[in-house]
């Protein structure tokens, strides 16, 4: 695009137009975030609200708290499963869905509908499906492996169920973006590969996957954000962090400390740590994403 694009010679209007976005960003996003940072250096009394400066003590105690480290660990494992297994399956499905065959658009719609389903409703659905005594999936698994998975009492079952439900819920979203990416790959490339005698697997790994990397990268980041934050309703409705803190993901721990135990300082420190993680991810998007903007 021409850099010297036409401009409206108006001096005041651009400021007026930016006011809503800028003011709402500052009041509702930037100031509260700064406050989070500030409060993380203070101990505030749960009932009187009195504040006492404690410096980095909250951060130190978090990183020596086995409960918090446990949350970090399971969040990491959880994210890894959501990204690797969830995106892998979604990519496989998207490649199938991008083939130009009759009726494929019905399959597309049939496979991406869980995108519309909220995490809270997905959690409700899975609570029933995997219910230890009346859930059809529990009965089917019992039939397969001869053992009943009870996620109310068994930590491994709870983690397993939460991961499966989260992956299932996010597949629709992944498919939407993978399909868009696949639609952008010129068909001549795969034609050329086929003429040169590359099989479908080789074609996928040498052509499709590398050309898809901007979308894949974008999805890696959004999937990590999903595993960090959007999973909250699943934990809150299904396991409440249990049994025995086995599903106490970082966002749930933050909620427990801030809104159930009123430990504002510790919760703020956790917010700040999450903010650092998100910032790194966002900067990666910008760095990587800048190549997507084309000025011709």
């Amino acid at each position: 695009m021409c850099m010297e694009r036409s401009r409206f010679p108006n001096k005041v209007l651009p400021y007026l137009l930016l006011i809503p976005a800028a003011v709402s960003s500052i009041i509702f996003i930037i100031i509260p975030a700064a406050q989070s940072l500030y409060q993380s250096f203070f101990f505030s009394h749960p009932f009187t609200g009195q504040m006492r400066y404690v410096g980095l003590k909250h951060y130190q105690s978090l990183f020596s708290d086995p409960e918090y480290l446990n949350s970090v660990r399971i969040t990491f494992v959880f994210s890894a499963f959501v990204v690797i297994v969830g995106m892998g399956l979604s990519l496989l499905l998207s490649v199938l869905l991008s083939k130009r065959i009759r009726g494929v658009s019905y399959f597309q719609l049939g496979l991406l509908w869980p995108y519309a389903l909220s995490p809270a409703m997905a959690a409700t659905l899975w609570a029933l499906l995997t219910h230890p005594s009346i859930g059809p999936i529990s009965h089917f698994l019992e039939f397969l492996i001869g053992k009943r998975m009870n996620w109310i009492t068994d930590a491994f079952s709870a983690q397993f169920m939460l991961i499966i439900a989260s992956i299932w819920k996010n597949m629709g979203y992944n498919i939407v973006f993978f399909l868009a990416g696949l639609a952008n790959i010129p068909r001549d490339f795969s034609e050329a590969a086929r003429i040169d005698g590359a099989g479908p697997l080789r074609e996928f790994f040498t052509i499709t996957f590398p050309l898809l990397s901007p979308v894949t990268f974008f999805l890696v980041v959004t999937n990590i954000l999903y595993a960090l934050f959007d999973i909250f309703p699943m934990v809150d409705l299904l396991t409440r962090g249990g049994p025995g803190r086995s599903t106490d993901l970082l966002i749930y721990k933050l909620y427990r400390d801030g809104f159930l135990n009123f430990n504002i300082g510790i919760a703020s420190a956790q917010s700040v740590i999450l903010f650092v993680v998100v910032s790194i991810l966002t900067l990666l998007i910008f760095k990587f994403g800048s190549s997507r903007i084309h000025y011709q």
Partner: peptide, 12 residues
């Protein structure tokens, strides 16, 4: 703003 989802600024 892009870096600050509601979850990290929820208490303030």
């Amino acid at each position: 703003s892009r870096m600050l989802p509601v979850h990290v600024r929820i208490i303030p």
